[in-house]
């Protein structure tokens, strides 16, 4: 099964899935690291500083 997945030729559905997963990841990073919501900011505060996100 793995071999199948890995040798799959470039396919439109494959690319769609890749873009979809990348967008989920970017959304999570944005929410955790950059979103302005006060609650999110306070909760993520120490992590944002340590990970070098622009904060404050």
């Amino acid at each position: 099964m793995n071999a199948m997945t890995h040798t799959a030729a470039k396919s439109a559905s494959g690319l769609m899935q890749i873009v979809f997963v990348a967008l989920i990841g970017a959304t999570i990073v944005f929410a955790a690291g950059l979103a302005h919501s006060q609650t999110l900011h306070d909760a993520a505060h120490d992590m944002r500083h340590s990970t070098g996100f622009p904060c404050h």
Partner: peptide, 9 residues
Amino acid sequence: LTYAGYALI
């Protein structure tokens, strides 16, 4: 959460 997001990317 942050690294899960990075890992997805």
